[in-house]
């Protein structure tokens, strides 16, 4: 069975639908990019997938190998207040919450794994630094390391490169691609349609027209072609 099966899903707030009749499947190892205009409901979709909010209609089925809480999440905005005192280590370790259950403290293997994930993100030299004093790109890596602690199976990333400069953006995309190669399923929201078609295996387009299929199919489709030329035009 697929990791995630979404059937006739409608989402929104207070009974008002933002996106309706979504159907898609995510298999283990997929790299799904969710694209669409601002306000088309991408973040809302992600929150619904994470059960942070109730769907208006339809269902989300998870495969047997995906247990509750076995999902790593990188939010679009972390509403961390600017004076929150927390070191990189403390934040990354907090990714193990789900595994902790009622056990009060982290054990040695969890501490080791946190260290490994920090190294994997290339921020080992920052591990004792204070989160709020890091740059945007460094903060994203910290949150990605935390998400990796929560799961080794599937990551949900909401615009992981928002506000990063082109160099750091490219590094971030490479990092995510490498994680995908290591077998982690990726669902990523992106505004950067160019990067989306470069890196992903599947595309979900939401908005006025809904599209779901492989990236090749998307590039050939009408909505895909339109969106691609529009973005290229916008960049010039």
């Amino acid at each position: 069975m697929a990791l995630l099966t979404v059937k006739d899903l409608s989402l929104g707030y207070d009974g008002q639908a933002i996106a309706e009749h979504l159907n898609f499947i995510v298999n283990a190892g997929d790299y799904l990019c969710v694209v669409g205009e601002n306000g088309s409901g991408k973040t809302t979709l992600m929150k619904t997938l994470l059960h942070l909010q109730e769907p208006l209609h339809g269902e989300i089925l998870t495969g047997e190998e995906l247990k509750e809480g076995d999902i790593g999440y990188l939010p679009q905005q972390t509403l961390v207040q600017k004076d929150f005192p927390a070191s990189v280590e403390e934040i990354v370790l907090s990714g193990f919450q789900g595994r902790l259950g009622l056990r009060p403290f982290y054990n040695r293997s969890e501490k080791e794994l946190a260290k490994k994930n920090i190294e994997r993100m290339g921020i080992a030299h920052l591990s004792r630094r204070c989160y709020r004093e890091l740059s945007g790109g460094q903060q994203q890596r910290v949150l990605l390391a935390r998400a990796l602690c929560a799961t080794g199976k599937i990551l949900l990333l909401d615009e992981p490169v928002a506000g990063l400069d082109p160099m750091v953006t490219a590094e971030m995309y490479q990092l995510i691609k490498d994680l995908n190669k290591d077998g982690i399923t990726i669902i990523m929201i992106s505004h950067d349609i160019g990067a989306a078609v470069t890196y992903s295996s599947h595309i979900l387009h939401i908005g006025n027209t809904v599209f779901f299929g492989t990236t090749e199919e998307y590039v050939e489709s009408e909505v895909g072609r339109f969106f691609l030329t529009q973005q290229k035009g916008g960049l010039q």
Partner: peptide, 13 residues
């Protein structure tokens, strides 16, 4: 829960 309530919820807390 103090640092990031949404994230904690997604981990099943």
């Amino acid at each position: 829960v103090t640092f990031d309530e949404d994230f904690s919820r997604t981990t099943g807390m």
